[in-house]
Nucleic acid binder design. Structure first.
Length: 228
DNA sequence: TGATCGATGCTCT
DNA sequence: GAGCATCGATCAA
């Protein structure tokens, strides 16, 4: 499969003005592209988690006041929020929620579609190599493979180098699984919210907690037929 | 196959 | 100064 057969239209700005919950479900239909100096890399999003501002004790924006790190979340939606965690891993979020409403969606896993060699090279360590289908599994792993860093923080997602597109043809049928988010045990009642979405049984979903609490039908991608 | 632990630096209190 | 939206190596079984 070539990129020409995969790539469809770039998701427009108004895609990001839908509710965070709707965008999270639709992201499971979308493709993230990173156009770098060393080549174009792309993957289908298969797992994500939403974080919804002051109502959500797990969110960086829970305090409700912008800080140096979280300022991007308070700005217009459709931008990248990238932060460093545990001193060594970057995590990529898509800002949603509208200006002043600090929501974001963490991308946790993707299915590789283009740039496999580049991704595998970036993920390789001294002792291990990963199978192709797991090269973008895990929030820290996918940023490493796709070379997404602090440099991407605040970038708009409607233009290169980092942008979201619709596939040029529908994906195979799938079910959407919902469950609690990963590694937010500190978040009290919010740790029970079913704010993690993934494609049921997809092999690229991050290893932990495949067990789902609820199943849903896919959410059609915004305007895929007639609006873009 | 699963549990544990160390790495490593930034952000916010 | 404490803790973190993680990962990979190691060790036990």
């Amino acid at each position: 499969m070539t990129m020409g057969t995969i790539l469809g239209a770039t998701l427009p700005e108004k895609f990001y003005y839908q509710s965070t919950e709707r965008i999270a479900r639709q992201l499971l239909n979308a493709i993230l592209v990173h156009d770098t100096e060393t080549g174009l890399m792309a993957g289908r999003i298969v797992e994500c988690e939403m974080y919804q501002g002051p109502l959500d004790k797990a969110a960086h924006s829970y305090a409700g006041v912008p800080t140096g790190r979280t300022a991007v979340m308070y700005g217009p939606p459709g931008r990248a929020y990238v932060y460093l965690i545990y001193g060594m891993h970057y995590c990529l979020n898509i800002v949603t929620g509208g200006v002043g409403v600090p929501h974001a969606i963490l991308i946790r896993a993707m299915e590789p579609l283009a740039g496999h060699e580049e991704m595998l090279m970036r993920r390789r360590t001294a002792k291990r190599a990963w199978p192709d289908y797991r090269v973008l599994s895990g929030p820290g792993n996918l940023t490493r493979a796709l070379h997404i860093t602090k440099e991407n923080n605040g970038q708009v997602l409607t233009d290169p180098p980092l942008y979201l597109i619709a596939p040029s043809r529908p994906w195979a049928p799938y079910e959407v699984a919902l469950g609690p988010r990963i590694n937010i045990g500190y978040a009290e009642e919010a740790r029970h919210f079913l704010w993690r979405f993934w494609i049921k049984d997809h092999p690229a979903v991050s290893v932990a907690a495949q067990a789902f609490t609820r199943l849903e039908s896919p959410e059609p991608l915004f305007g895929v037929d007639d609006t873009i």
